[in-house]
Design a protein around this nucleic acid. Structure first.
Lengths: 239, 239
DNA sequence: CCTACCGATCGGTAGG
DNA sequence: CCTACCGATCGGTAGG
């Protein structure tokens, strides 16, 4: 356990900066992450988080802060994960189609690898993004920026039909997000639709494959024979 | 105010069946609907609902029941709205492409017309569908059934490429749902992306237009010249 | 005896 | 980091 220097301690005997090296902090954040995801902000009790982390409730206030601050740290960590991965793994990608497929893949992997992310984000969006800080919006802007780079590259080079980045990002990330969080719903629906032999319901990977093969393919300009039917302009703004 | 018959009253002086004709019941349900949507189940207080409805808290227990029951009634009403509209408005539609466009239109109109629906559904899905009753799943099965009818018709008649109904429904409804509930997030993001002149962010109608012109168009089989590039099979199951 | 509620308060638990 | 608490407020129910 890292021993904090004097400078890291202040008001009310609480820490002023969060020590992310501390194992206690990690346990608190991990416990908070899964509880906020399952029960949303209002439905999660501080005592519950403390118990899951194996610490006293007051320890959370010492290391991190109040419930709002703890939630903000958890939510920021979710967004930073995607911003970091997208920028790192697609930094060298110069092909817009490959780039957009990478955006789909990273969202699908991230959401299915840690369902706490899409669940917490869904709660936050559903609640009107009331606890979304400007810092968090800045991190999301990086995510938007990666997709936007490939869209602009693709349209400029003629490989992609004109499309609004925000519309595309919403379609890609939104459908992957919903397809992750509704897994329990789908399982029970499958039983409802066919009691005896429930058919397999689509996984997030099926949705990702659909987005790859249908949406991205539809946005690609045709090889050059010009025989394909005209495609309506998907959006009006962003002139 | 409708006067209930003897048969409608029972245990503990509470009503056994909900009188949907009662104006008091309507006010309670409307208040609960908007508060559950904004603050989710755990974040909504019974006292708050009562105040918004202009009744005493005990009146909710008399007319409807406890918090779980009230939530179930509200959530069921949301799903029933879509099931009813889809079945009614698309009952006579025999064209699979027009039918799927109708499914998109009704979801877009329903979500944007009453944002309480997508917000509450998002909270419920994010929370793991813990409060989703078998009766509610049966209502969703009707929604799935309408989309499934058009998919089967389209594939059987050769107008539509093979596609899994659950995947398509998830892509259509999911992206429309997210694009509705993240309106506040988008507004603030637009300001972050361009402080001086925030560009218009896509509305749910832009998403609906994109789904119409890109996704549905991509699923349509080509006119017959057979010159279009091959399209990968979107999904593997549902043989 | 009933309907349609209200004022007051219960045992427990939340954030701090 | 914990013990020992607080003001307030939660969902639900009593009697009238």
């Amino acid at each position: 356990m890292a021993r904090p220097s004097k400078k890291n301690l202040l008001e009310n005997g609480r820490r002023t900066v969060i020590d992310y090296e501390s194992d206690t902090v990690r346990r608190i954040l991990d416990a908070a992450e899964s509880l906020f995801a399952a029960n949303c902000f209002a439905g999660t009790r501080m005592e519950e988080i403390a118990a899951a982390a194996g610490v006293n409730k007051a320890t959370i206030y010492y290391h991190i802060g109040d419930k709002e601050k703890l939630y903000d740290v958890v939510l920021t960590r979710h967004f930073a994960y995607f911003a970091d991965r997208l920028e790192r793994e697609l930094a060298d990608c110069r092909d817009p189609i490959e780039g957009l497929r990478g955006v789909i893949r990273i969202h699908a992997e991230g959401f299915s690898g840690n369902a706490n992310a899409p669940r917490t984000i869904a709660h936050e969006l559903a609640g009107g993004s009331r606890r979304t800080s400007p810092e968090l919006l800045a991190i999301y802007a990086r995510i938007h920026g990666v997709t936007d780079r490939f869209v602009r590259q693709g349209v400029a080079s003629g490989r992609l039909r004109p499309v609004d980045t925000a519309v595309l990002q919403m379609l890609l990330a939104g459908s992957l997000l919903v397809s992750t969080i509704n897994a329990p719903f789908r399982t029970r629906l499958a039983e409802t639709l066919d009691k005896d032999q429930p058919p397999p319901m689509p996984s997030v990977l099926d949705i990702a494959a659909f987005l790859d093969s249908v949406v991205i393919a539809a946005l690609e300009t045709e090889p050059s024979d010009g025989n394909s039917p005209p495609l309506a302009q998907p959006t009006m703004q962003n002139g």
